[in-house]
Design a protein around this nucleic acid. Structure first.
Lengths: 205, 205
DNA sequence: ATTATCTATAGATCTATAGATAATGC
DNA sequence: ATTATCTATAGATCTATAGATAATGC
């Protein structure tokens, strides 16, 4: 066997692992890690419970796999923030991407929120080793923009928190938003307009 | 027995129910409803498990009691928003109160967030019957302020969401905030300054 | 030959109750 | 007499495995 013990997965392997992860994302994101059961995941995936455990080492393995997949996706928009771009446009684009992610990947947002809410037992190492440097780097970029007078004075750290909070709110608190807006079909557009206006007013020098 | 079957609780009743609710708030807010166990609550309360069930009908009874206590506290700042006050000052005062609550009652914030995240199985009726009318009423107040030119044009609904999101973020995502700010002791003050500036810039006509 | 799936169940964990005993208030 | 507490355990739920059988790929 040439490279290590790496066996390339068969077609059915890929398919079933995918089915399981998708089902598990549903279940974990709505019930939390402890609240989720293998029965629910198996049912949602359309596979038997022992068959789930044929593809994964256990409940925790599935959860960890989901979180690892998520973290890359989750930090990607921030990575993309371009120091050489036009300051305000870069920030507004970032806000817009985060808001679209809240609409398109609400389960991922809730999975992450649930994990942090519970004290981040599985992602604290990632926060410290990966997100922290990225956060500092992008705070420095924003500070540069402020110093050059391209943005109004703002605390970069709390600006980023405000962006995360306002955008993810639409995924994490979707049930509440839905009730209070009476299922308004325009809510995503209205939210986008509101956040665009808010951060524009905040940051225009 | 004069009024109904209401027996006034003894001193020890009050004390132990209080101990249990405080312990349960700790446990439910960090582990979620399903993740919490009576063992953990009993241990945290310093009572035996059957003794917990002597004071409450069961795990769900404790959870419901906590949520009911919470909901009143939680909507109080919004109730207080005074239509006859000075528009911007009223909003900024509301923001400040919400932020202080995130600092002083983080467990309550997380309990509520967890409940909404899981689809609000126990508080959806409350959202529709109590919060909804209050939300509409206060949106109308803000709209009046905008119409009178006392506030810059803003979507009242999404303004309120932004206030909730940005303030509660410091409680619900405390672990992440703490890591990224490296335990900065000034973070609450900095957050207050940032949010004050942000909503001032957004809302000043 | 290896991969995939199923039935049956072991073993752990949790909520809740039964039933006895101790403490407290008239 | 009533309130409060304890030990022991029933009964339900869940994760995970054992062991047998079916399907698939050389």
């Amino acid at each position: 066997m040439p490279d290590g013990d790496v066996k390339k997965p068969s077609r059915i392997q890929r398919r079933n692992r995918g089915l399981i992860l998708d089902a598990a994302l549903d279940v974990f994101s709505t019930h939390g890690y402890r609240g989720a059961t293998l029965d629910q995941i198996a049912e949602a995936a359309g596979l038997s419970k022992p068959n789930i455990l044929y593809y994964f080492d256990g409940k925790e393995d599935i959860h960890v796999t989901l979180l690892n997949q998520l973290l890359g996706t989750w930090q990607d928009p921030l990575v993309t923030l371009n120091p050489d771009g036009e300051a305000l446009a870069e920030i507004l684009c970032y806000v817009r991407r985060k808001l679209d992610m809240a609409r398109d990947l609400p389960r991922e947002s809730r999975l992450f929120a649930g994990e942090i809410l519970r004290g981040a037992p599985r992602v604290t190492p990632y926060l410290a080793s990966d997100l922290q440097p990225l956060f500092d780097e992008k705070c420095a970029v924003i500070k540069t923009w402020v110093d050059k007078g391209q943005l109004a004075p703002v605390d970069p750290r709390h600006l980023i928190f405000s962006i995360w909070a306002t955008t993810q709110h639409y995924a994490d608190f979707a049930v509440q938003v839905k009730v209070l807006l009476k299922d308004d079909p325009d809510s995503h557009k209205d939210a986008a307009r509101h956040l665009d206006a808010m951060f524009t007013r905040l940051l225009t020098p």
